[in-house]
Design a protein around this nucleic acid. Structure first.
Length: 848
RNA sequence: GCCCCUGUGGCGGAACGGUAGACGCGGCAGACUCAAAAUCUGUUGCCUUCACGGGCGUGCUGGUUCAAGUCCGGCCAGGGGCACCA
């Protein structure tokens, strides 16, 4: 018999699905909808294994839901703006649009080879003017709604990429993409007012029940809500300074007031104090070159001012400027209580400031309790704190707040760590910001009739800085308000804006407006979103914000775009290095007798641990190369097998070959089946081995259905193996109709996972319809149910035997049978049973 | 430093508080072959026993329970996130 020819078969079915437009989502369907979405790819040029895993999982779910009768939307697009295209343009002299387009063409072809059930009619790229023009419209609408504003701000400047970065894009003081140490600059930039929704974005996380807890925690931490008190100190120069504290209870332990180097008061004082000015200047320099080395070093500079304690005008605290106080959080000023704050303690020790404990742990003597190396952050009773003495921490916080509020000197407030989203980028390959700067009218939105504000095709990427800004004519335009000469904004939007609403555009890619409210109403929220954990904060938070913006602009009633989120693990592979420590690709290495050698010259290779596939370690395997040899189905099967989808998976040759063998085995089971009645013949009442095979089939249906519903692909795969084993082990003489039922079940169950093989089997079984258009099988409860159950019998918790009984067997009978077992008698050694626990259908435990 | 997650055979991993190791990979033995590949059958946690059987086993350590991989406390290890957020 001929082996299964994956390449031929896969091409055939892909053409067939495409010709019959099987995977188009229809908007007017009366069926329940299901929107399955995987995070769309950046068109780097090739699909990698991470994509392959992501899209396999999504496709499996989409096909499963379609078979279950849902009207499925499963689209694909391209996150096509961004720096790599610009770099390619600069380095290779190509037009970024052409570079992106050819990458997309390549990757689209690779995705199609995977046999994905995608509605390709809805495909778009974010660099299409039809898309980004509508994004510009949204930007202007958000502007009018107060969700977009322009502000001069200290920004994170990436000196390598020559652009501003959002806070979220600065990691350990370095640009997320370039890795360059970020500088601080004051620039006028566009912001999204994401902080307008701080509380809502936080509170709604509790309702996202189908999101991983891990992601919700990360977002919670990122939003960083803290409750505290905002109050002011009177200064010796007659002014005041406002501070924020979450620990107002420790106010009597205060030993200084510290201002951020960027605090307006610090800047004002510096004008008449050269030493202070120099100190502030030096603060701006740390965080550049020696950022890591000097990271922990706390430094301060005395302003000469003093601050009066809010509850004792005669108690004067020194006012310092300190490098560790952040302007961007709270008020940019703090009171320092060294006994109960690590940072304040470090600072106080360095500058010899008092350290007075005011919260005493239970069981400690207030007169003896002293602070050593570490500040005390735990609970306790107040001491050395006048009217607060004896109170618990929470009580004391409330009392301080009450008194200061009553005196009109403070108020309880909530602070968030979340800042507004800086969205301007000084780059050319992005969505132009549709704003015009007019000398007379100021900043004015572009007219709607001028949208899209198109990128010019003749950008010069050889220039330093922003090519859009250097273009000879592009930025010159007429003011939309007065008609006078004006200039376009030459910044573009952060590419995270592009990915913040694409899922909404997919609902109707022909919509005249940015989105079609009726289509959103029908399709959103996305029922299952699948992607990498690396987007846990940025993309997912921005998309949540954007959905709220769409709501405010009247496009949807929804707040949350993704009802279900799944974050898949990464793909890992062993790493290889030659004698010189140079990385080798898996294809350059061969293994013999437990050792690895370089194919080219036979020299020994050092095998390193399995790590995330990456170009730098050269441990990547290209999906397309794999598909060439084994076919898409074997790859898809591998991606779903064994490892739970949220965990990292290790790509191994052995595992992959095992998948290929299973593909062949399934094909053989079907191709070698003899004596099958024609399609449509129902399997009737069966007995003995035939009944067991029917049961295996129906139990597989029930189990696979349940596992796919819960995205437990690895377990669904195991269930299918069990069914295949049952079919392979079944008697040749078994009734043909029963055998047909089992084989058809096998074909249908692998349909979402190995769709091409499934179609081939379906056809081989005599069907003329497509399996992709065949409903999911139904398990017969009577066949899933067990006639007998195995009951474990324990003596003192140790297994001593098992019993086969009817599920509804009477407890007394079970008890008697259990006591009669040889193993039980042996274990009891004639001792009487003190107690016998019988759990119906499960276990008997005899306590002796 | 803070927060979170994960520790189960040689490996990936199963297991509503109820027979630990489903299923796969790998290994071993056998069948078919001149031979190999492919395929098929059996077997495969560790120790002990000729065998029947017995003992030990889910990172360590206490506890709750008739019963703990699973629940609770304390530790250890690995991974991830945040990181001067007052």
């Amino acid at each position: 018999m001929a082996r299964y020819n994956a390449r031929e078969s896969e091409a055939k079915w892909q053409a067939e699905w495409s010709a019959r437009n099987v995977f188009a989502a229809s908007d007017e369907s009366g069926r329940p909808k299901c929107y399955v979405l995987e995070m769309f790819p950046y068109p780097s040029g090739n699909i990698h294994m991470g994509h392959a895993r992501n899209y396999t999982m999504g496709d499996c779910l989409a096909r499963f839901r379609r078979a279950q009768g849902f009207n499925v939307l499963h689209p694909m697009g391209w996150d096509a703006f961004g720096l790599p295209a610009e770099n390619a343009a600069r380095d290779k002299g190509v037009n970024p649009r052409l570079w992106v387009e050819s990458n997309i063409a390549n990757m689209r072809a690779q995705l199609k080879l995977m046999g994905l059930a995608i509605d390709w009619d809805r495909e778009f790229a974010t660099c299409d003017p039809e898309y980004y023009g509508r994004q510009q419209k949204l930007f202007i609408e958000f502007f009018r709604q107060g969700l977009v504003y322009r502000s001069e701000a200290d920004v994170n400047w990436d000196p390598v990429d020559q652009t501003v970065l959002a806070n979220e894009q600065v990691i350990d003081g370095r640009g997320w993409r370039s890795g360059a140490v970020v500088e601080r600059r004051k620039l006028s930039q566009w912001f999204f007012r994401i902080t307008a929704y701080s509380d809502d974005l936080l509170a709604a996380l509790d309702r996202l029940e189908r999101w991983p807890e891990k992601v919700r925690i990360m977002q919670r931490n990122w939003i960083g809500r803290s409750e505290g008190l905002r109050f002011s100190f009177a200064l010796s120069d007659g002014g005041t300074v406002e501070v924020f504290s979450t620990r107002p209870d420790t106010l009597f332990g205060a030993s200084f007031v510290a201002l951020s180097p960027d605090h307006p008061l610090a800047e004002k004082l510096a004008r008449n104090d050269p030493a202070l000015a120099a100190f502030i200047e030096s603060c701006h320099h740390t965080g550049t070159a020696e950022a890591e080395i000097e990271k922990a070093e706390k430094r301060g500079h005395d302003t000469g001012l003093t601050a009066a304690h809010p509850f004792d005008p005669d108690w004067k605290l020194p006012v310092l400027v300190a490098n560790f106080v952040l302007m961007g959080y709270g008020t940019g000023a703090i009171f320092g209580c060294p006994a109960h704050d690590e940072r304040d303690l470090e600072f106080a020790r360095k500058y010899g400031l008092p350290v007075l404990p005011v919260v005493i742990p239970d069981g400690e003597d207030p007169k003896r309790f002293a602070i050593g190396e570490e500040a005390y952050l735990g609970p306790g009773r107040l001491a050395n704190s006048r009217f607060l003495d004896g109170m618990a921490v929470e009580e004391a916080k409330a009392e301080v707040a009450r008194r200061l509020e009553a005196a009109g000197r403070g108020e309880r407030t909530v602070q968030y760590r979340l800042r507004d989203w800086l969205a301007s980028r000084q780059r050319a390959w992005g969505c132009p910001i549709p704003m015009v700067h007019c000398g007379k009218c100021g900043v004015v939105p572009a007219r709607e009739s001028d949208l899209p504000v198109r990128l010019p095709d003749d950008l010069n990427f050889a220039v330093h800085g922003n090519p859009l800004d250097h273009h000879p004519t592009w930025k010159h335009t007429a003011c939309p308000a007065c008609g006078g000469a004006a200039q376009r904004d030459t910044d573009t939007l952060d590419t995270f804006v592009d990915s913040s609403w694409y899922f909404a555009r997919f609902c109707d890619t022909k919509a005249e407006g940015p989105v079609n409210p009726a289509a959103l109403d029908y399709w959103l929220p996305v029922d299952q979103y699948i992607g990498g954990i690396e987007h846990a904060i940025l993309h997912l938070l921005y998309a949540r914000f954007f959905t709220r913006g769409l709501k405010r602009a009247g496009y949807t009633k929804l707040d949350e775009p993704f009802a279900g989120l799944f974050t898949q693990g990464m793909i890992c592979h062993e790493t290889y290095r030659d004698r010189d420590g140079e990385w080798l690709e898996p294809g350059e290495v061969e293994k013999r007798g437990g050792q690895a050698y370089r194919k080219s010259d036979g020299t020994q290779v050092v095998v390193g641990p399995s790590e995330k596939m990456s170009k730098s370690k050269r441990n990547t395997v290209a999906p397309s190369a794999f598909i060439d040899i084994y076919g898409a189905d074997a790859m898809r099967w591998f991606m779903l097998s064994d490892t739970p989808p949220e965990r990292d998976i290790e790509w191994t040759e052995a595992g992959v070959e095992g998948c290929w063998r299973f593909v062949q085995r399934v094909h053989r089971l079907v191709a070698e089946a003899e004596g099958l009645p024609p399609p449509g013949t129902a399997a009737g009442e069966a007995q003995g081995a035939a009944l067991e095979l029917r049961r295996a089939a129906h139990r597989a249906i029930a189990a696979v259905t349940e596992d796919l519903d819960a995205l437990r692909f690895n377990r669904a795969v195991a269930q299918i193996y069990t069914l295949a084993n049952a079919i392979g082990g079944a008697d040749a003489g078994i009734d043909g109709a029963v055998r047909r039922e089992a084989l058809e079940t096998l074909a249908l169950l692998i349909g979402p996972m190995m769709p091409h093989l499934a179609e081939t089997c379906w056809e081989a079984l005599g069907h003329t319809s497509l399996l992709a258009q065949t409903p999911w099988p139904q398990a017969d409860p009577a066949l899933v149910r067990h006639d007998t159950v195995t009951i474990a019998v324990q003596v003192n918790g140790k297994l001593r035997g098992t019993l086969e009984v009817a599920p509804d067997a009477h407890e007394d009978a079970v008890r008697a049978q259990a006591l009669a077992l040889d193993g039980v008698r042996r274990a009891l050694e004639a001792r009487p049973a003190k107690r016998i626990i019988v759990v119906p259908r499960r276990i008997v435990n005899i306590v002796a």
